[in-house]
Amino acid sequence: MEDDQDFAEILQSGLCDIADVRHVNSIAQARAVMEGREQLDVIILDWSLPDGDAVCLLDEIEDLPYPVRILGLSSDGQRAQDGRVSANLVKSRAELDTIAEHVAGHRTQAS
């Protein structure tokens, strides 16, 4: 989930070799994708979205019938840690290679 279209396009381009990226820009759209038949392996959350704080999705993600890794990626560098989130990266400090490593599962912790 990413509400910045330019940043979303950069992510999609940078991750296309390792992941099938589906972009949504709101909590409502994320819920629609999660309710679909497609199994998700990794969800990248931008915490601040136009229709609310994406933290409200953590319980819903946890209730999915399959395991999903959650990666926080936001401009909010003060986000409190949550054990359900494998990493919280700050957009202005995270390089695309680092994000890709987290998506691929080669890195397991970051703040």
Rank of each mutant, 00 (worst) to 15 (best):
Arg69Asp: 11
Arg84Thr: 13
Glu62His: 14
Gln12Asp: 05
Tyr66Lys: 02
Glu62Phe: 14
Val33Glu: 15
Glu62Ile: 03
Asp20Lys: 07
Glu35Trp: 04
Arg31Cys: 13
Leu11Arg: 01
Glu35Ile: 01
Gly52Cys: 05
Ser74Trp: 03
Asp97Gly: 11
His23Thr: 07
Tyr66Asn: 03
Ala80Leu: 12
Glu62Asn: 13
Pro67Tyr: 14
Gly77Tyr: 04
Gly105Ser: 06
Leu71Arg: 07
Asp17Thr: 12
Ala54Trp: 03
Cys16Asp: 12
Met34Gln: 01
Glu9His: 13
Gln5Pro: 10
Lys91Val: 08
Gly72Ser: 15
Ile18Val: 14
Val33Met: 13
Leu40His: 07
Leu11Gln: 11
Arg79Leu: 13
Thr98Trp: 02
Leu49Cys: 04
Ala30Trp: 06
Ser13Trp: 11
Phe7Ser: 08
Glu95Thr: 10
Pro50Met: 09
Gly36Phe: 08
Ile44Glu: 01
Ile61Leu: 06
Ser92Glu: 05
Ala8Met: 07
Ser48Arg: 11
Lys91Gln: 05
Gln29Trp: 00
Val68Ala: 09
Asp63Arg: 10
Ile44Ala: 12
Ala28Gln: 05
Glu62Ser: 15
Gly72His: 12
Glu60Phe: 09
Gly72Phe: 15
Asp51Gly: 11
Ile10Met: 05
Asp76Ile: 03
Ser86Phe: 06
Val24Leu: 03
Ser48Ile: 13
Val33Ala: 12
Val68Gly: 01
Asp53Glu: 10
Gln81Gly: 11
Gln81Cys: 13
Arg69Val: 00
Asp76Met: 09
Leu96Trp: 07
Ile27Ser: 03
Ala104Tyr: 10
Asp53His: 14
Ile99Lys: 08
Glu95Cys: 09
Ser26Phe: 10
Ser92Arg: 07
Glu9Arg: 14
Ile61Phe: 08
Glu95Ser: 11
Gly72Ala: 15
Leu58Gly: 01
Arg31Asn: 08
Pro67Cys: 13
Asp51Glu: 04
Glu9Asp: 15
Asp59Ile: 07
Trp47Phe: 15
Cys56Gln: 01
Asp97Glu: 14
Arg69Cys: 06
Ala54Lys: 03
Tyr66Glu: 04
Glu9Gly: 14
Arg79Pro: 00
Leu57Ala: 10
His102Tyr: 14
Asp63Pro: 00
Leu15His: 06
Glu60Gln: 10
Val21Lys: 00
Val42Gly: 02
Ala87Lys: 03
Ser26Trp: 05
Asp63Ser: 13
Asp63Phe: 08
Ala19Gln: 11
Tyr66Ser: 09
Asp6Phe: 15
Gly83Ile: 11
Asp53Leu: 12
Met34Pro: 00
Ile27Phe: 03
Phe7Pro: 01
Ala80Asn: 09
Val68Cys: 07
Gly105Ile: 01
Ala28His: 05
Gln29Leu: 04
Val33Pro: 05
Asp20Gly: 09
Ala94Gln: 02
Asn25Gln: 08
Ser26Tyr: 10
Thr98His: 05
Ala19Asp: 08
Gln5Phe: 12
Asp6Lys: 08
Ala30Arg: 09
Asp6Ser: 12
